[in-house]
């Protein structure tokens, strides 16, 4: 049986289920905390540090990432303090140094009163939030992509930077990317993703494109159905 704890967020009493995070508790009472790497379909990760909040512990306060910090009985949480805003400003400026043009980041920056980064810009595009890698691993279940290296040279890529053997071309990574830096192109019955071409399957009844062949083959495998189950009819003509 799940336990309920009561805590205070920005002076409001909030009930939350034990084991959930501060971010979820805040969302349940419509307190918005900016975040980039959190997604309810994925395990908490704590990479982007945009969701920092201040918690009170005795006489002191401490900064924690609300997307990974679990609710506690009687906890006092402040989501908008000068200290919190300063950290968020720093974080968004560091992210802007990697990607100075994406509207999502610029909007977040503007909300914090930031127009441009104070740091030297080195355009990488990717902000290393890990949503693509984690979606591929946890939701899709194929783990076709991952990180490479560490520190300043860390980046998202396929094993050995080659055509990914496990990729099913579903495009979930490109869809989930908050800054849209994973190229995906559908053209003339071919999907190009991770520098690899994958044929798209057409519906055998109406001829509309359903999905990449490899994705349907994967569906057939995990559901134990014949491939024809997914190719004979599409959602439009079923």
């Amino acid at each position: 049986m799940s336990q309920t704890v009561t805590l205070t967020i920005d002076g409001r009493q909030v009930q939350a289920e034990a084991g959930t995070t501060l971010l979820e508790a805040a969302r349940s009472v419509n307190i918005q905390i900016p975040h980039l790497c959190s997604n309810e379909e994925l395990a908490p990760y704590g990479a982007c540090r945009m969701c920092m909040v201040e918690i009170r512990q005795g006489q002191r306060t401490r900064l924690v990432a609300s997307c990974i910090y679990e609710v506690e009985e009687g906890l006092e949480v402040q989501t908008v303090t000068e200290r919190v805003l300063n950290v968020r400003r720093l974080v968004i400026e560091l992210l802007l140094a990697r990607n100075p043009t994406h509207p999502t980041l610029l909007k977040m920056a503007a909300d914090l009163g930031i127009e441009k980064t104070r740091f030297e810009v080195e355009v990488k595009g990717c902000i290393l939030c890990g949503l693509c890698v984690r979606t591929c691993r946890e939701v899709v279940g194929v783990s076709a992509i991952g990180f490479e290296g560490r520190g300043t040279s860390r980046r998202v890529t396929t094993p050995f930077n080659e055509a990914p053997p496990d990729c099913i071309a579903c495009g979930a990574c490109a869809t989930v990317c908050p800054v849209g830096v994973i190229p995906l192109k559908d053209k003339a019955g071919i999907r190009t993703i991770w520098k690899t071409d994958y044929p798209l399957q057409r519906c055998e009844s109406c001829g509309r494109i359903i999905a990449p062949v490899k994705q349907l083959e994967y569906f057939a495998k995990i559901t134990n159905q014949p491939l024809s189950h997914f190719t004979e009819h599409c959602v439009h003509c079923r």
């Binding site: 890698v133 591929c136 076709a144 991952g146 990180f147 490479e148 094993p159 990914p164 053997p165 496990d166």
Partner: peptide, 25 residues
């Protein structure tokens, strides 16, 4: 060697992307 990493992945049932991640880290 690349083939070694592929083999380790297959035998341990660990995705190649994960092994590549560790080998480059």
């Amino acid at each position: 060697p690349k083939e070694a990493l592929t083999t380790v992945g297959a035998l341990l049932q660990v995705p190649l992307s994960r092994i590549y991640e560790i080998a480059t880290f």
